[in-house]
Design a protein around this nucleic acid. Structure first.
Length: 492
DNA sequence: TTTTGAGTTGTTCGA
DNA sequence: GTCGAACAACTCAAA
């Protein structure tokens, strides 16, 4: 059978695996020879801090990918071409140098990525080359799950219903690359070298290794194996940050070291066998898709509220707001669960999902600070940061998005703590200075008698802060803040 | 078109 | 401590 292309280039981006890889499979089907490329894109990397766990995670995944490609080809001349520069110029340039006719890539749905791919596509087209993008990151794209009036869903529950009705074997089918070994090209000499070091691309080591996050496709497999036996309990365990409840696969979904089709298939199988945990977990995967399609269909959410009227909220501004925001970032709010959550984020680049809500709600509804400040901080710190999920989460917390019900969504940081970390195990892990407080008071040390604080070694205002705000008062102010906007939009 | 039911993960109050 | 109702009356999606 004749293939349409003599030679093609697979451009890896956030799909750093070999199994069930849509673009790679397509390229192998359509090309007699295939090169594989990853670009450390300076447009993305240059604004980052010089120590970034994500860059290190990516590099580890590339090492494994490179090795996998060489193993697949059966010779060391194959492997991943790794470049450092601007994708927009490098990809067309390399496509030219390698003499390929087509470039294959998984579709990326973020606004900046769409812009980048448009430019690359145009550059390539200018010299008669083609950019093929294919679906890989999601099971359903933005126009595949629609309401009966053919509009995108903006409410999760009906979206989920429609998603579950639409999902079938075809949607989850694994992408297989037949005879991939035969088509992997030798790299031209200038590219026949190791994956660059962190230093080569201007970075320094973060504490990723120390955190023992399993990396690469093998790391994802390891985490999935570990989660598999816990999956049935997911619905019971996922809300308690001191418990190993989650899959911890979010970072792997972010960088594509695991296939979402594979995960959804596993979840559906377990669900069919009656697993409530699997059902809840699949719900989280559907949330991911919900937020993907929300960003893709309503790109204005990237810079403002889903409902524009909520952009009129009078957030706290000025030096005091700045200082309070800084205290929140550094985990110095005086509310132990919030501070422990921020410590977890700052130390590990990960934060438990329940705590993302608790700390987010605290910033927006207790400190009265614009949710976009928090969104930006999480974007900088989270190893699993994804624009659509992070944005969707913050809009939910800020009640500025779909299903806005601000009077429902003011978390009480103390009752959340009592409910989801009843023995203060998580708090004690991250705030050792509170470790000797009794369970009852570890959630709110300012309520403790002076004598008890003294005996527990807690000196409020010295080794642990006094609460930054009074929750009950903050709650009232927030209700006013929101109702002012609602009144205004009603009368407008 | 109009109507109807429902909305991830909450909190507070009073019995 | 536990329970149910109220919160405030909005918007979406389906019938």
């Amino acid at each position: 059978m004749d293939k349409p292309y003599k030679s093609g280039l697979v451009w890896f981006r956030r799909d750093l695996r070999l199994n069930d890889h849509a673009a790679f499979s397509l390229a192998v089907q359509q090309c007699e020879q295939v090169h594989c490329l990853f670009v450390f894109d300076r447009a993305i990397l240059d604004p980052l801090h010089r120590a970034d766990r994500r860059v290190e995670f990516i590099r580890a995944a590339l090492l494994e990918l490179d090795e996998g490609l060489r193993r697949l080809a059966g010779h060391d001349q194959a492997g991943l071409i790794v470049a450092h520069g601007q994708s927009v110029t490098l990809v067309p340039q390399l496509a030219h140098e390698l003499g390929v006719q087509a470039v294959f890539a998984a579709q990326d749905y973020e606004p900046a990525a769409i812009e980048r791919d448009d430019q690359v596509g145009q550059q390539l087209a200018g010299s008669g080359l083609v950019l093929h993008t294919c679906k890989d990151q999601v099971i359903f794209e933005k126009r595949e799950i629609l309401t009966r009036s053919a509009t995108p869903y903006t409410v999760f529950t009906p979206y989920k219903k429609a998603w579950l009705a639409a999902v079938d074997d075809a949607a989850l089918a694994e992408k297989k690359a037949p005879r991939a070994d035969a088509v992997l090209s030798a790299r031209p000499t200038p590219w026949r070298r190791d994956v660059p070091s962190l230093k080569d691309i201007g970075f320094e080591a973060s504490n990723l290794a120390q955190l023992k996050i399993p990396t690469g496709e093998s790391g994802a497999r390891q985490l999935l194996r570990d989660f598999f036996d816990r999956m049935d309990q997911y619905h019971n365990t996922r809300d308690f940050p001191a418990i190993k409840g989650p899959s911890y696969l979010s970072v792997h979904l972010r960088f594509g070291t695991v296939s979402v089709r594979h995960l959804a298939k596993l979840a559906l199988q377990r669900m069919a066998a009656g697993s409530r945990g699997a059902e809840t977990w699949l719900g989280e995967l559907i949330w991911r898709e919900f937020y993907f399609q929300l960003l893709a269909n309503f790109p204005h959410v990237a810079s403002g509220s889903f409902r524009p009227e909520y952009d009129a909220i009078a957030w706290e501004q000025g030096a005091q707001a700045q200082a309070r925001f800084q205290a929140w970032c550094e985990g110095r709010t005086g509310y132990p669960l919030v501070d422990a959550a921020m410590a977890q984020l700052n130390q590990s680049g990960y934060m438990h999902n329940r705590l993302r809500m608790v700390s987010g709600s605290f910033l927006v509804k207790d400190l009265g600070i614009d949710w976009r400040w928090g969104e930006r901080y999480f974007a900088e710190k989270l190893i699993d940061f994804d624009l659509s999920a992070n944005n969707g989460g913050w809009q939910w917390v800020a009640s500025s998005g779909c299903d806005a019900q601000p009077w429902f969504r003011i978390f009480n940081p103390v009752s959340q703590s009592e409910k989801f970390d009843p023995e203060g195990r998580f708090i004690r892990r991250y705030l050792p200075q509170l470790a000797d407080l009794p369970n009852k008071l570890v959630h709110a040390p300012w309520l403790a008698e002076a004598e008890l604080l003294r005996s527990a070694g807690v000196r409020l205002g010295e080794n642990y802060p006094k609460p930054l705000v009074d929750h009950a008062l903050a709650r009232e102010r927030t209700l006013e803040r929101y109702s002012a906007v609602r009144a205004k939009s009603r009368s407008a």
